[in-house]
């Protein structure tokens, strides 16, 4: 039984790694379009992908650049964790209490309606040029996404399962831990993937505007020097960091939770 579980996991991991080929093919297509753009517009407007990769290699061979990338990643992940926790807790509360939901809906609309750039300006005034500015901006920009996902998850839960649990003597806490959270997880993971992406984007933007170093700071410098290849290289580094977090953590955890959905597909392409 345990051996079967492990071979199953190994198979899933293998499929997951194998699916990287299709991702690679899509990225190669993007690189081809990029190369085409380069050949049309020239080196100054759009450096070649290979030149950018070389610039990236040069940047990454400097240990100081690693510190910069880690700094931005740390800020993004910090903001992501805080906003995931805040959004998930608020979403649970709103999902289980319709009155809270009614009060929270307009607030979410307002929060999502204000452009992140406005929050950055406010956060800069409140927190100055510190990590706080970045984390708070991420919190405001991405926690509503998690909130909506979780609240949606709670309200779409299968109430007949709740009744079943009640018939077997489960109190409210047991029902929440064994049914509610498990169902919410299915809605939580897509929201987490989106909010992680938002966290990285907002982190870079906030760094650029608040002048607090990190990848955003390097982008600001590249712009000042009209160093297009450098700017593109830093963008690629930011995207690579995001991909590492998303495919290294969010997706594996998600696929572990969604094993039963994969089981419903008997053969063919497992997505």
């Amino acid at each position: 039984m345990i051996a079967a579980a492990w071979t199953g996991r190994l198979g899933r991991t293998g499929r997951f790694l194998w699916s990287a080929w299709s991702g690679l093919a899509a990225l190669s297509l993007l690189a081809a379009l990029w190369q085409f753009g380069h050949e049309v517009y020239g080196d100054f407007i759009l450096p070649a992908p290979l030149a950018t990769v070389r610039a990236m290699g040069a940047i990454l061979s400097d240990p100081k650049s690693w510190d910069i990338a880690v700094l931005t990643s740390r800020r993004a992940v910090e903001g992501f964790v805080v906003s995931a926790l805040a959004g998930a807790l608020a979403g649970l509360a709103a999902g289980y209490s319709p009155a809270t939901m009614r009060a929270a809906r307009p607030l979410v609309t307002v929060l999502l309606g204000v452009p992140p750039i406005a929050w950055i300006v406010l956060a800069m005034i409140w927190f100055g040029s510190t990590d706080g500015t970045v984390v708070v901006t991420i919190l405001i920009a991405s926690s509503p996404l998690v909130f909506v996902g979780v609240a949606e998850g709670v309200t779409t839960r299968d109430r007949s399962l709740d009744d079943m649990a009640r018939a077997f003597g489960a109190g409210p806490v047991k029902r929440l831990t064994t049914l509610g959270l498990r169902h919410v997880a299915a809605h939580l993971f897509p929201a987490l993937a989106i909010s992680l992406g938002t966290a990285f984007k907002v982190a870079v933007m906030a760094e650029l505007l608040a002048n607090v170093g990190g990848i955003g700071g390097e982008l600001a410098r590249a712009r000042a020097n009209l160093d297009v290849a450098g700017a593109l290289a830093w963008v690629m580094i930011a995207v690579a960091a995001l991909i590492a977090f998303e495919y290294g953590i969010v997706h594996p955890v998600r696929s572990e939770f969604e094993r039963w959905r994969a089981a419903a597909v008997p053969w063919g392409v497992k997505r």
Partner: peptide
């Protein structure tokens, strides 16, 4: 209806009352 937990195996579904 059976009202089983879709994300749990048959074994875990049977054991659910014990888990509670």
């Amino acid at each position: 209806g059976p009202r089983l937990l879709p994300w749990a195996t048959a074994l875990d579904n049977i054991a659910y009352p014990l888990r509670i």
